[in-house]
């Protein structure tokens, strides 16, 4: 792993804008939902795949690679875009997205179908415990790879998340980093109103984790937090990333209708116009 001392933030911005446009277009053409959920974690994935993870897209099964699991598996559309742009496979493969018989649908499939996908997620609460197992394997087999998982805030309703949280800190699994995509919404309402989610950062802290709270759309803050997580040698790290559901398209931002809704032609045109202007 080479840690880059200089991060090209402008390049990350360009990639993020390009992928936002592709996401919105695909959601519209293939009628793929969870657009708001994808847009909220997109910047986190871009930073991870371009700056943080020790990976080689040409050698996706290398046993020493870092592992990333999208525990909130309904964000698969953004993961698929990121993996294509990062070079795991040709962007042309995404032309089949959502078509009958395609492997590209609403959730990541089991490994082996799409290069770079580490685990089938979609049923919430599975990804983090699996990442925990992968990190424990590194410790037992004396390997130095790190494991990362992005969780939804709604996903933190699941008991298995907190089971994993207690065990990971209990066995001091410091090579495990969790990022919570805290967009303040879940499928049918405000995440902090449906269950007592707050205080989210303190919860993770009380479960024995090293915790940081950041703006999940600010690449500088993401970099800083991930560097700190890497330096932490006694505890697993949780980064509570405050994000905006639907980030990047004004009429989608913080509007939970875009959990399920897909853009019609007019909405697509408006969204693309906004994203192009913001360049």
């Amino acid at each position: 792993m080479t840690i880059k001392s200089q991060v090209n933030f402008s390049n990350l911005d360009q990639i993020a804008r390009k992928l936002r446009k592709r996401l919105v277009k695909t959601s519209s053409s293939a009628k793929i939902p969870h657009l708001g959920s994808c847009l909220s974690c997109l910047d986190l994935l871009v930073y991870l795949y371009w700056e943080e993870l020790s990976i080689n897209p040409k050698d996706p099964a290398n046993p020493d690679r870092d592992r990333f699991l999208l525990s909130k598996g309904h964000g698969a559309p953004v993961l698929f875009q990121v993996l294509a742009e990062r070079g795991y496979y040709s962007i042309n493969r995404l032309e089949d997205f959502g078509k009958p018989g395609s492997v590209f649908h609403e959730h990541p499939p089991k490994p082996g179908y799409i290069p770079g996908v580490e685990a089938a997620t979609g049923s919430l609460g599975h990804g983090l415990p699996m990442a925990l197992g992968m990190a424990l394997a590194a410790r037992i087999l004396d390997k130095s790879y790190r494991c990362y998982a992005i969780l939804g805030d709604g996903e933190c309703n699941e008991g298995s998340i907190w089971e994993a949280a207690m065990l990971a800190s209990g066995i001091k699994l410091s090579d495990l980093t969790v990022i919570i995509d805290f967009n303040k919404w879940q499928a049918t309402g405000r995440s902090r109103e449906i269950m007592t989610l707050d205080p989210l950062a303190s919860k993770w802290e009380s479960f024995g984790w090293h915790v940081q709270e950041i703006n999940g759309h600010d690449f500088y803050q993401i970099k800083h937090a991930l560097n700190n997580a890497r330096d932490e040698k006694n505890k697993p790290s949780a980064i509570v990333a405050n994000t905006i559901k639907g980030k990047g398209v004004s009429f989608m931002e913080d509007n939970n209708n875009w959990h399920y809704k897909t853009p019609n032609e007019q909405e697509l045109n408006s969204a693309i116009k906004e994203l192009e202007v913001s360049q």
Binding site: P63, R67, P111, E118, A119, H126, P129, M130, A131, L132, G133, M134, A135, L136, A137, A138, L141, S160, A164, L167
Partner: peptide, 9 residues
């Protein structure tokens, strides 16, 4: 789940 993560690694 942890067991499956271990097994995949």
């Amino acid at each position: 789940s942890m067991a499956s993560g271990l097994a995949l690694s």
